[in-house]
């Protein structure tokens, strides 16, 4: 167990978020059972008021979740010199078996919380709360993930003991070992680039189609999720190489460091923004049959598509410019 200030900060944020979420869940359960928009009972009125509180709580939670994702990576990066063999966040996360699951859960929870906020936004534009039950079921669905994140994060930090020899990012992401990450790293760069650009072209195509023709929302959601996964893989497989200008260094965390102008932050932010709005656009589309929403959905959906495509577009633009103007030539190797 390491008593580092930012570890204390992460503990604090997880426990507070979980406590607020559990508080919201107790009302979600009541709402799922007793909600009746036609009733004018005392209970119904108080539940309607509670919905404001829960949207406020979730908005804050979403914001804290995003910050804690980056604080977590930054902390892992900062602690690497406590472990011999660890050279950046990759090594620190590998110190015990909980490191990577926490990271993945943090990303998943961020996406889930973002989706919830989008559904909430759609729900409150209608006068009759048409999505209330779906919204609160999703809240109950998110809670176990948040609880798991808190539990795993606690296990991860309490299991950290300085000086454990770990494999550094050089070996973890090098092309020799066989694990999922190294398989991504060893993917031939030309093929990886082709897959990356094709996925982006398809996402843009379906997005534009959805924008003008109002069809294919589900496809767009799936494609934007796929693009997210492919882009993160692309970051490991070839994009990071252009930043490090080193054909063997595939680390997805080092680009967050100041040496590379904190490039990782805006790359990951555009991707996260893209995936949340992309998934949200598809989900929004599935509600267009609801009477009170029929007029509003296309407007909201178009806005989400625009945000999603401009985030992904920005990502592609930054990455492509980097590849064109870099002195580093990957395919020569």
């Amino acid at each position: 167990m390491i008593l580092h200030p930012s570890i204390i900060a992460l503990y604090l944020s997880s426990f507070i978020s979980l406590a607020l979420l559990l508080y919201s869940c107790s009302f979600a359960a009541v709402i799922l059972r007793k909600w009746d928009i036609g009733s004018g009972s005392e209970l119904q009125l108080s539940l309607e008021r509670r919905t404001y509180l829960i949207s406020v709580i979730l908005s804050y939670l979403f914001f804290f979740q995003l910050l804690s994702l980056f604080l977590f990576i930054y902390t892992a990066d900062n602690l690497h010199n406590l472990f011999s063999g660890a050279m950046c966040a990759a090594g620190t996360l590998n110190v015990n078996q909980y490191g990577y699951p926490v990271l993945v859960l943090k990303i998943v929870n961020f996406i889930l919380a973002g989706t919830w906020l989008i559904i909430n936004r759609i729900d409150i534009v209608a006068h009759d709360y048409p999505l209330i039950k779906k919204k609160y079921s999703l809240l109950l669905f998110i809670t176990p993930f948040m609880a798991a994140e808190t539990a795993l994060q606690t296990s991860y930090f309490t299991g950290l003991n300085a000086d454990v020899i770990t494999s550094c990012c050089g070996s973890l992401f090098s092309s020799d070992a066989t694990s999922i990450t190294s398989e991504i790293a060893s993917f031939p760069s030309l093929q990886a680039k082709t897959v990356f650009y094709i996925s982006m072209v398809l996402t843009f195509g379906s997005g534009i189609f959805l924008y003008y023709k109002n069809r294919g929302g589900f496809l767009f959601s799936i494609l934007s999720l796929l693009s997210f996964v492919i882009s993160v893989s692309a970051l490991i497989s070839f994009i990071s190489l252009y930043y490090y200008e080193l054909p063997t260094h595939h680390c997805p965390f080092c680009i967050l460091q100041s040496e590379y102008g904190y490039a990782g932050y805006y790359l990951y932010l555009t991707l996260l923004c893209g995936v949340v709005t992309g998934a949200g656009a598809g989900i929004a589309g599935s509600f267009s049959s609801i009477g009170s929403l029929a007029q509003r959905i296309p407007v909201i959906q178009k806005r989400l598509i625009l945000v999603c495509l401009s985030s992904y577009g920005l990502f592609v633009l930054i990455v492509t410019l980097k590849m064109i103007f870099s002195d580093f030539i990957l395919e020569g190797y």
């Binding site: 200030p5 930012s6 900060a9 944020s13 507070i16 910050l67 804690s68 980056f70 604080l71 930054y74």
Partner: peptide, 12 residues
């Protein structure tokens, strides 16, 4: 990083 940690410890 220090600012973010402080933010979590106080504003949150």
């Amino acid at each position: 990083f220090q600012i973010a940690t402080l933010f979590f410890l106080t504003v949150l």
